[in-house]
């Protein structure tokens, strides 16, 4: 897994509520397309017109937001299906960080497994960031629609230079900062797992018919 430390990048607002993982990656693409190629189908139902051409209205097709690596989203982002392909598809488009008031719980965990940082901030704060990004795209603006995310400092810097502190659980932060592989880490705890399982086999033997 790639480490996540500092990301200074273009950011795009997608202030819709309840964007689900079926939208982020349709199931038939997940079924048929190799993981590394899913980016081409991220947000497919919104991203293309019926004739297959790009939908210019799609948020990441607007010139100011094209190539954004940070998405600023509405409540309950990526709810629904557990498909990790939603994270892979967004990564395939270059996204490494999502800021939202709340997330689908399985997507939230899946992000951390792939070096993507989900940042939860109060809704008013998320809306203020989205407003700043939009303002930065208007003619005459002195700013660019960019955010700087520093995981070490747990801080987002907005186009106007406002600094917003965020919380991220320590264990998740350490893993991202160092690009740690959770499976490899857990395998080093095999003795504890074995001891726990031996205890569980003794105290709840009916769960272990094969033992």
């Amino acid at each position: 897994m790639d480490a996540f430390t500092v990301l200074d990048a273009r950011a795009a607002p997608l202030m819709r509520q309840n964007v689900n993982t079926d939208i982020i990656i349709p199931i038939h693409r997940l079924r048929d397309v190799p993981q590394a190629e899913l980016g081409a189908y991220a947000f497919e139902p919104w991203r293309y017109l019926p004739d297959g051409s790009e939908n210019p209205e799609f948020f990441l097709h607007q010139p100011a937001y094209r190539g954004a690596q940070i998405v600023v989203a509405g409540d309950n982002f990526a709810c629904g299906s557990s498909r990790e392909g939603a994270v892979w598809a967004m990564m395939g488009m270059g996204v490494r960080c999502v800021i939202a008031p709340s997330f689908g719980p399985i997507f939230f965990n899946n992000c951390f497994q792939n070096g993507v940082l989900p940042i939860q901030l109060p809704r008013a704060e998320v809306e203020a960031i989205a407003n700043e990004l939009e303002a930065a795209t208007r003619p005459g603006s002195n700013h660019e629609p960019r955010l700087s995310v520093d995981l070490q400092k747990r801080e987002v810097v907005t186009p106007s230079g406002r600094r917003i502190t965020f919380h991220v659980d320590g264990i998740r932060r350490d893993a991202l900062l160092q690009g740690l592989n959770e499976v490899a880490l857990t395998l080093t705890r095999e003795a504890e797992i074995a001891a726990h399982q031996a205890k569980a086999r003794a105290s709840t033997p009916w769960l272990y018919p094969a033992a």
């Binding site: 557990s82 498909r83 990790e84 392909g85 994270v87 719980p105 399985i106 997507f107 965990n109 899946n110 497994q113 792939n114 659980d169 264990i171 959770e182 499976v183 857990t186 395998l187 705890r189 095999e190 797992i193 399982q197």
Partner: peptide
Amino acid sequence: AFGVGATEVIHVLATQSLVQRKP
């Protein structure tokens, strides 16, 4: 009982355990 992602499935298969935050 809860749903997990593909990488978490690998974690479960390999270690019969999972790292989770208590809800």
